[in-house]
Simulated scan of single mutants.
Amino acid sequence: MRRLAPLFAFLFSLAGIAQANDAASDVDAMMSRYQGDVPGASLLVIKDGKPLVSRGYGLANLETQEAATPATNYRLASVTKQFTAAAILLLAERGTLHLDDHVRHWIPELPATHEAITIRQLLSHGGGLIDYEDLMPANVTDQISDADVLRMLAAEPKSYFAPGTSYRYSNGGYVLLGLIVERASKQSLPDFLARNIFQPLGMTHTLLYVRGGPNVPHRAYGYSEENGHWTRTDQSTTSATRGDGGIYSSIDDMAKWDAALYDRRLLSDASRQLAFGIQNKVSDEVDVDGYGFGWRIHGDVLWHSGESMGFRNVIIRWPKQRLTVVLLSNRNDPEPYRTALAIGQRFLHTP
């Protein structure tokens, strides 16, 4: 039997490869809505550090007929939040700030009624801040900036709940976290992310986009379907805020990000444990038990979606199985979470 053990291992390996190949062959059918002369998507499936699927579907730009590829860069929208959280954790590791610092220590413009809010609570959506989207004037047509968000929150003394007593998803909280990164590091947020996260990880085409800054390479433009026709809807009034949703990236670069989440090449073990652990319980969202720092948590699954006008994205990770699915799309529909979840489940039990 000992002599046969290598043979059995080889046969099991071949069976695993065949199963993975069968799962990969099903993917195109599951991605059928993204195929053809329509706004498309890029899909990544990584298992044990190896990309089993890495391909584009449809078009990144309808006007030029540019195809979507693994190198296409999409606006990540709220998938950005895990990078903003990582920036805060890096500064905490360096002693530049502390997670239990009061936010007003770094942003004194906020009213005294928000004195008790901490950085830790902003990271886990426990600050209770009023949504800045609800504070925007009804007739606003120009894009709002982080400075505009700060002015609105500085003028609003009310909150939804006392800090640390509940959960409410807050884009404004992550805008403030981006401003804290700038003030604590004395660098602009795009520069800090580039120098401390993107460049060290080799994410050479990922950037926090700002108007007038560097162009996005291989850029996908967002579209929405209206009356059976696709219309470019790439930017909205809230598309210029940064810490809550401004990063552009590709599945090629997201593979490098995913790899860094398994070891200490970027964050310490303690920081990753904080990010991936439930810091605030969630009871009103589907497939969410709690929120960490930039991550939704459901059982053993870590995930986050990102939605802005013309873009729908998701990253889903099964760390214990070392499996990750990233689906980035430049269209308002369909919502990608269920598709990505179904794709991931096809690979879950491969050796």
Rank of each mutant, 00 (worst) to 15 (best):
G58I: 06
G58D: 01
L59T: 05
A60K: 02
A60V: 06
A60N: 10
L62N: 06
E63L: 08
T64V: 09
E66D: 15
E66S: 14
A67Q: 14
A68Y: 12
A68S: 13
T69W: 08
T69N: 05
T69R: 13
P70W: 02
P70N: 10
P70I: 11
A71L: 15
A71D: 13
T72C: 13
T72D: 10
N73R: 02
Y74C: 11
Y74A: 04
Y74V: 11
R75V: 07
R75P: 03
L76P: 09
L76Q: 07
L76H: 03
L76D: 08
A77F: 11
A77M: 03
S78G: 05
S78R: 09
V79T: 11
T80D: 03
T80F: 12
T80S: 06
K81N: 06
K81W: 03
K81E: 00
K81V: 02
Q82N: 06
Q82R: 06
A85K: 14
A85M: 07
A85E: 14
A87D: 12
A87T: 07
A87M: 10
I88D: 11
L89F: 10
L91C: 05
L91F: 02
A92S: 09
A92N: 12
E93V: 00
E93G: 05
E93C: 08
R94N: 11
R94Y: 05
R94E: 14
G95A: 00
T96G: 10
T96W: 15
L97E: 10
H98K: 15
H98N: 13
H98E: 15
L99I: 11
L99K: 08
D100T: 12
D101C: 09
V103Q: 09
V103Y: 11
R104F: 11
R104N: 10
H105T: 15
H105A: 15
I107A: 05
I107E: 14
P108Y: 10
E109L: 07
L110R: 07
P111S: 10
P111K: 04
A112K: 03
T113D: 08
H114V: 03
E115T: 06
A116G: 01
A116W: 02
I117M: 07
T118A: 06
I119W: 08
R120P: 02
Q121E: 13
L122R: 05
L122E: 07
L123G: 04
S124Q: 01
S124T: 04
S124A: 10
H125V: 06
H125W: 12
H125L: 09
H125T: 13
H125S: 06
G126T: 06
G127L: 00
G128H: 00
L129N: 03
D131Q: 11
D131N: 04
D131P: 08
Y132K: 04
Y132D: 02
Y132L: 01
Y132H: 13
E133R: 14
D134C: 00
L135V: 07
L135H: 04
M136P: 03
A138Q: 10
A138W: 08
N139V: 03
D142G: 00
D142N: 05
Q143P: 01
